[in-house]
Design a protein around this nucleic acid. Structure first.
Lengths: 149, 149
DNA sequence: CTACATGCAAACCGTTTGCACCCTA
DNA sequence: TAGGGTGCAAACGGTTTGCATGTAG
């Protein structure tokens, strides 16, 4: 399956997701989810806003924030604080469980598929008596370009 | 070794740390580091400010922020975004490498000692050609009290 | 038609900064 | 006593909110 048809496929899916979450299927929401799906890494509200502007779909920044918050509440989107500053990043959940490797120097974010923590979570549930429902893992370092310098 | 003497011990250590980082050994800095060391979990600048106030050591909030930033830059403190909102948490690094288990309901933060990721980091370095220098892992779930409800 | 969505501008709030004064080394 | 540290108040910037208007179902 090629990239293009994967995205078409995803679009059909998320119109369903919106419906099932009781959300109206508006132009803004579709445009914002499109951007999230096409992005290979988590992005900020402002980045989404700018990408929309580029593609001649001007949507107010507050609408972007409100949409992301709504989708987060419905579980369709996750809000992340990858850089440990006050900029929040967002990712579309349908893309599967992912972790990130962040270059400290150039801020590049590389997506890691596959998760080393499944059995660890089980162990920890026994130890702590928590019911664990998820985790976030960020790894930091220098990418191949930056480590040369 | 009892808790009290551990803390006394740590204090001697961190007066050294300050000196070695070229930082002046001021009342504010000592008070702030004391709070960090005594806390069994990462805390916010405002929590530090309030604890200081309680113990009759009023230190301006900007000074708290400035001190934390200075200590972060010197590598004595780490800044974390555990809750994925715009409140930053801080921890004292001398306490060793730690991970956190956060209760989604009551916001309790449990410290986890021991790290399941050492060999994983090595694998990943080969795969990605990054030089990995650290990671952050947060696990989320419901604590034993909250999962009953 | 009506409840939810959006645009706009103002408010919010955690954090940072400029400047005058203070204190450690 | 010089240069870093602190208090105070104002600025900053990402995010949220109130309100009037628009639109999907």
């Amino acid at each position: 399956m090629k990239g293009g048809s994967l995205i078409l496929n995803k679009r059909a899916e998320y119109e369903d997701d919106l419906k099932q979450s009781g959300l109206k299927n508006t132009k803004s929401r579709k445009a914002i989810i499109d951007i999230l799906i096409q992005s290979d890494q988590p992005i900020t509200a402002e980045q989404i806003y700018l990408k929309l502007k580029e593609s001649k779909t001007e949507i107010n920044l507050s609408t972007v924030y409100r949409t992301l918050e709504t989708l987060d509440n419905k579980g369709l989107v996750t809000k992340l604080s990858i850089m440990d500053d006050d900029r929040m990043f967002f990712e579309y959940n349908k893309m599967g469980h992912r972790h990130y490797l962040v270059c400290i120097n150039c801020k590049k974010i590389v997506t890691i598929h596959g998760c080393p923590l499944t059995s660890y979570e089980e162990e920890l549930e026994k130890e702590t008596d928590f019911h664990i429902v998820g985790h976030k893992l960020y790894l930091y370092g220098y990418c191949s370009d930056c480590k040369k310098k």
